[in-house]
Amino acid sequence: MGAVFALVTVLAFVIVVYVGVGIAGLRGLFGIVIPYAAFLVFLIGMVYRMIEWAKIPVPFRIVTTCGQQKSFRWVKRSRLESPYNNFEVVLRMILEVFAFRSLFRNLKAEIKGPNLIYGSYKWLWLGAIAFHYAFFTILLRHFRFFSYPVPEPIQILDQIDSFFHIGLPHLYMTDVVILAALTFLFLRRLADPKLRYISLASDYLPLFMIYGLVISGILMRHFFKVDVTQVKEFTMGLVHFNPKAPQVGVIFYIHIFFLSALMAYFPFSKLVHMLGVFFSPTRNLANNSRAVRHQPAPWWKKPKFKTYCEWQEEFKEQLIESGQPIDEDCYEKK
């Protein structure tokens, strides 16, 4: 259901652009107004989300410890899985953000006869890491459209990515990787009944939008060619706030529209996990709550409870009867 909706939405995007640019010729709208607006929404939205989260206190140190705590010198502790100070927390976060540490731990449970067994299952980790790194590389690569002269590292990256001369222009390896990874991420949602059950339209939509973005990009590079010089004149115009919509094929506008849609969608969807992961209290805190005094949340009030003296009054008889000491201090204070 969700997948169908997402597919229809994405196809609608294509049709909208096709009608808007191909037929109505609204190049200014689709080339300039929408991208700028989407970028603003993205920028402001993301910053807003971060501020929104940051305004909420973290009242307790609810670290998820996945390794030995710091205790005795002779006990080997796990700095990464049970960080004791901020430096170790940073290391843990780096592993989490750059290596997807937690997904790497993934297992797959299986019932075999009377036994429950756990297999190693790193496919999700592999798919996720392939997708994210490929996406990031593609993003960096696109910097060649936003700079002149193009910085050397970007050019080197481009050359490494197109190291194997397949087709002309050369096929980027990241293009292949991201398509494969997206396909895996999509198919697993369909193939595994559990995942199909939990997947919402808003899980398929970003996948499909990125599919659209990637496919339109690949089509533009290899099949429905556009004049890349004009495209760059346009992108350079964008960053100089002096854009002129290029007279190129609709495919380019489809590409730009998918990008805009994705940017605008970002802050309001699950895609905020990109920033949210940094705000996760189970990962970004140190496991030192017995050693270091932390500030309680501003709203936190010390609890009211039955004090010893009140309690002693209530159980005085039994205490005396069973020979337990009576605290005379309770009466002195009064």
Binding site: F42, F146, S147, T235, L238, V239
Partner: peptide
């Protein structure tokens, strides 16, 4: 995210 703008 604003690299393209401020570098240019």
């Amino acid at each position: 995210v604003t690299v393209p703008f401020w570098t240019n």
